[in-house]
Amino acid sequence: MADNVIEIKGLKKSFGENHVLDGFDLNVPRGNNVVVLGKSGSGKSVLIKCIVRLLEPDEGSITVLGENVLEMDHDELDRMRVRIGFLFQNSALYDSMTVRENLEFPMRRHWFDITKEDADQRVNEALENVGLLYAADMMPADLSGGMRKRIGLARTLILRPEIVLYDEPTTGLDPITGREIVELIMDLQQKYNTSSVIISHDMQVARMTANSVVVLADGKNHAQGTFDQLKASTDTQVKQFYEGVT
């Protein structure tokens, strides 16, 4: 069996009568980028929120780094969440804190005994990584969308996660900034050697990052393959995404 960092089987999640995920399967091999494509409202965010248990699935199994996430108690879950980074769609920076405090927050919360020097050094390194060292003392409200995304990325990576989940990393950005963010993601991915799930409906992202592409439709893993394999597909659900892509 290949070395999978994430294995999802038969995942189901409904909100009342709205069956969002209806038996979804997914494997993420170590070191790979899996891009999950889906229309708006197809349940992409629900999927990655289930992986870190921000949402409780109704059925199915989720194994992350060899451990069953759904059977974890609170402390085990906290330890697992250090190993999984999550980049939220709108970056989710804490409005009431400066950029520096935003980056310090996950460290202080997970590593109680971290020293001031150590924390400072990590914050500086994280900000340098995204080219925003000068923004350390700014408030999130004063940052542009692209800058917020970079800071969000820095905050996500500061704990050195082994797996990173990206929720629509380019949505809401102009194409050029979006491209820069994707390039940054790829650079940092190589530097820190992470595996990732990237959810998106942006084909640019899929083309640039994906080792494999999964199409999420009707709550299921509708199709899977490399970017070029799916490009050749005749399935209508798959073709929708490739329309206009050369």
Partner: peptide
């Protein structure tokens, strides 16, 4: 609504 509460939750808080 901006998912800051979710972000807190995954940050061990």
């Amino acid at each position: 609504v901006t998912e800051q509460i979710d972000a807190m939750e995954v940050s061990g808080t």
